[in-house]
Each structure stands twice: as structure tokens, then as C-alpha cells.
């Protein structure tokens, strides 16, 4: 009776203990569980996109954001840097300028559109470095264990013993007021999470039968790690990346807002709002639209990450 209750409480009850299906094509020896895993994955993806309107909305916003980030400058109606101080200072939204203009007569729509590229670039660079370094530290710690693990993880914990944004502010402030220093600061803040995540994954994957099987046929060392263990940790890392893109973009704008990131005249959203703050009483549109773009983007990545987690990681079983 109690068995039934737990099974019905958890939608994925039956497969809760099965290995989580990996996004990467299974290159492992666990042939038996692969088909049901794939089936589960497909069903979950379908439920993820069609069953949940919020996920769909998130996906659409993310796609729009990506298109803007790649083609934004070409699609924008005006040159985002072109000033017109005589004729179009702080114009409210109109047909000619759908989002209005700023204090130097620049078109806000064009600037907001171009700003998406900066945000995506920063997030991409920051997360590439954070994931690479974090994965390296995490897999070395998880694979070798013992004193190596202890040392590396205590080192990692030191970075986590601090509120992330404030650590980023301290580092960015020390390094200098350039966007690339902001990226360095943010990568420093983000990597420890990946180290911990990957280490945990490796510890649990190592115990699985297919790893034992691989070891029994003589595989070991980097090859075992790279070909068999890490690919199985990929789905969890991908979910984390999706969630972190939003936070990385938010953190970049926050730093820019206090003058530690992109500098004017860059159309970075946080930088724009930092200037716009001085005009908030006469030009509501000036802070509203960059902030709205930022909020929507972060929101969309969060929703998508959350949804992916539900769909790809049956063990999380949060609903």
C-alpha cells in the first residue's frame, strides 16, 4: 500500500533509480537500459514543450534573444551609436522610435537590440571558462579522490564562502573597469559550482555497473574518464549552464550598473540603466525598456533551465 503511494506521488517513480538519460548519445556499455532511457527522454521532451506553456514561452524568448544577439545590429532600425542632440533628445516612444530615444538622441530600440549581443557574448565567455576550469578541477578531484580531492575541494569551498556578486564586485574592482575584467571576475565566481557539480556526478557515476564493466576490460585513466564517465555527467552540466546563462547576464548588468563592467557609450543594458537613472523622472521609457529586456531574458533562461531539469533529470522529480 505504501509502495503504491510513493509510486503515484512521483511521476517517474518506476525509473527513479535508473540512470539518468544522457543528452549525449550513449557511448557507454549500458546497452540494456539505453532504449527505455531514450524513450523516456523523448516523452519528457514532448511534455516539456507542449505540456507546459511557460516552458514554451521561455523557449520563444530565448530564441528571439539569440536571433537579436546574432543579427541585432543588422536588424536594428538605426545606428545604436548615432547621436542626434538637436532634434531627438529624450523623445517618448513613437512610430519613428518605438522605444523612444536617450539623452543623446540615440534610438533606444536599436540600442536594446544591440545590447543583447554583449550580454550573450559575456555569458558565453564566462561560462566557457567556468565550465572548462570547473570540470577540470571537479573531475580530477572526483576521479583521484583522497588527499587530491580534499585539497581541491577545500580550495573550491573558499570561493563559495562568499556571496557571489560581492566577490565578483571585489575582483572586478581590483582588476579594472573593462568588460573583459568583468568576465574574468564572473568566471572566478562561477567555476566553483561546476567543480562541485562535476565532482559529485563523477563520484556517483563511478559506482555504476558500466564503469565497473569498462574497468574490468582494462580501461582506466583519462580514457575512462573522458569517454565513459564525463559524457554521462553532461546532462546535469547542461541544465546548470542553461540556468547560469541568466544569472551571468544579470550579474554582468549589475556590475555594469555600478560602473564596473561595460562603459558608456556601450549599449550594455546595465550601463544604459546606470545613465538612465538620472533621467527617470522625465523619461520613464529610458530605464524601463533595457530593464524589461534584461528581466525577460533572465526569466526565459531560468524557466528553460527549470523545465529542462524536470524533463531530463527524472530523479529531481520536483513536481
Amino acid at each position: 500500500m505504501s509502495m503504491e503511494t510513493t509510486a503515484s506521488a512521483d511521476p517517474s517513480g518506476g525509473v527513479a533509480l535508473a540512470p539518468s538519460p544522457s543528452i549525449v548519445k550513449p557511448v557507454t556499455l549500458e546497452g540494456a537500459s539505453a532504449p527505455s532511457g531514450q524513450h523516456q527522454l523523448r516523452r519528457n521532451l514532448k511534455r516539456f514543450l507542449i505540456g507546459n506553456k511557460l516552458n514554451l514561452a521561455g523557449l520563444i524568448i530565448v530564441v528571439v534573444f539569440l536571433i537579436l544577439a546574432i543579427f541585432g545590429q543588422a536588424l536594428s532600425p538605426y545606428d545604436p551609436y548615432a547621436q542626434d542632440i538637436t532634434g531627438s533628445k529624450l523623445l517618448p516612444p513613437s512610430l519613428a522610435h518605438p522605444l523612444g530615444t536617450d539623452e543623446l538622441g540615440r534610438d533606444l530600440l536599436s540600442r536594446v537590440m544591440t545590447g543583447s549581443r554583449i550580454s550573450l557574448q559575456v555569458a558565453a565567455v564566462v561560462l566557457t571558462f567556468a565550465v572548462a576550469f570547473g570540470t577540470l578541477v571537479g573531475s580530477v578531484a572526483g576521479y583521484f579522490g583522497g588527499i587530491v580531492d580534499e585539497l581541491l575541494m577545500r580550495f573550491t569551498d573558499m570561493f563559495l564562502a562568499f556571496p557571489a556578486l560581492i566577490l565578483a564586485i571585489a575582483i572586478a574592482a581590483s582588476l579594472g573597469r573593462e568588460l573583459y575584467w568583468t568576465m574574468v571576475a564572473l568566471a572566478t565566481v562561477f567555476w566553483p559550482w561546476y567543480a562541485r557539480l562535476v565532482r559529485g556526478q563523477i563520484l556517483s557515476i563511478r559506482e555504476r555497473d558500466f564503469v565497473t564493466a569498462a574497468e574490468s576490460v582494462g580501461l582506466s585513466g583519462p580514457r575512462l574518464l573522458m569517454r565513459h564517465i564525463l559524457p554521462n555527467a553532461a546532462s546535469v552540466v547542461i541544465i546548470q549552464i542553461t540556468l547560469d546563462i541568466g544569472y551571468a547576464i544579470l550579474a554582468t548588468s549589475s556590475l555594469s550598473f555600478i560602473g564596473l563592467g561595460a562603459q558608456p557609450p556601450s549599449p550594455e543594458w546595465g550601463t544604459m540603466m546606470s545613465t538612465a537613472r538620472n533621467y527617470f523622472r522625465e523619461a520613464w521609457w529610458y530605464t524601463t525598456f533595457p530593464g524589461l529586456a534584461l528581466t525577460l531574458t533572465v526569466f526565459a533562461f531560468n524557466v528553460l533551465g527549470d523545465g529542462l531539469q524536470d524533463a531530463l533529470d527524472p530523479r529531481s522529480g520536483r513536481r
Binding site: 537613472r277 530593464g291 534584461l294 528581466t295 526569466f299
Partner: peptide, 18 residues
């Protein structure tokens, strides 16, 4: 709970001020 983590706190502050 979803918007709370996505809203930039400085933007919310400026909007509230406005």
C-alpha cells in the same frame, strides 16, 4: 518565485522610485 530571481533588483528599485 520565478520573477523574483529574474528581476534585476536595481531596476525594480528605480521603477519603484519612479
Amino acid at each position: 518565485s520565478i520573477s523574483g530571481l529574474a528581476l534585476p533588483v536595481f531596476w525594480l528599485a528605480i521603477m519603484a522610485q519612479f
